[in-house]
Design a protein around this nucleic acid. Structure first.
Lengths: 131, 131
DNA sequence: CATCTGTTATACATATAATATAACAGATAT
DNA sequence: ATATCTGTTATATTATATGTATAACAGATG
């Protein structure tokens, strides 16, 4: 699993890590049941502190994307255990997208154009057919 | 202009202020040329420090949504001067929406459903016809 | 002339982010 | 069994972001 970080970004490193792992799952590059590197080895690989990796793992665990077994280590949850579309998630989504839509309206980016951007992101991230 | 702040939110006050003013413009409740309250009076009204309001105003000015005249005070820019859809804005939008789409894919919220949420926000915010 | 304006400077308190070092208990492999 | 690797927890330090507080300046207003 390739991890690309922007250490100059205003987005916290642990957030970038979470985003990349979630996108890895969404794209199929990380499959359910697959194990993630240990906090120490991943931290060492990308040159950051182990606590930063641990924070990302802990939050991903809290949100239900990964599990930690004493034996198997850190693994991506099975498809049936994957977090669903809850009311809480929909509420968070609305609050997050509201300012985005408002600014789009101000700048004259209409609904169809924003929808097209969303569509492109779906196609960009979604698992591609192999061979 | 009604301002509603959540002082318990993890979203900075100056960001909430910017969001509400931009949504005010998007909804038509704030019209081009309309003047905004002074940093001191707005700060006093909502019970926060004047520097917090000043930071929001300064950033909104930098992004091109408002102007500051020595005479007229702080005003919403004219329609022709409103920030447009620039390459820089589209890039920011993509980076912002990418993690949103990735998590949607993981949770099984498909493209049509997310598009529907966007549509609802557009209708929610957009200026309503007056009689 | 007094008052209001945005703006700037300085200082302080608090919270978050990231790093550093250390230790503990369970699991693994030599 | 012993050394190593695992996630986890604790403590400390540094840097940055946020929000507040007080003060001052120059332009505009009545």
């Amino acid at each position: 699993m390739m991890i690309e970080l922007d250490l100059q970004s205003e987005i916290p490193i642990y957030t970038q890590l979470m985003d990349q792992i979630i996108e890895g799952i969404a794209s199929g590059r990380l499959e359910p049941g697959e194990s993630l590197p240990s906090v120490r080895s991943l931290a060492s690989d990308i040159g950051i502190n182990l606590h930063t990796v641990n924070k990302a793992y802990t939050l991903l665990k809290q949100e239900g994307f990964i599990q930690v077994h004493r034996k198997k280590g850190v693994i991506v949850v099975q498809k049936e255990e994957m977090p669903q579309v809850t009311e809480h998630y929909l509420a968070k989504l609305g609050q997050q997208l509201r300012p985005v839509v408002a600014e789009s309206l101000c700048r004259g980016l209409n609904q169809e154009q924003l929808t097209e951007i969303i569509a492109r992101l779906y196609n960009d991230i979604q698992p591609q057919d192999k061979e």
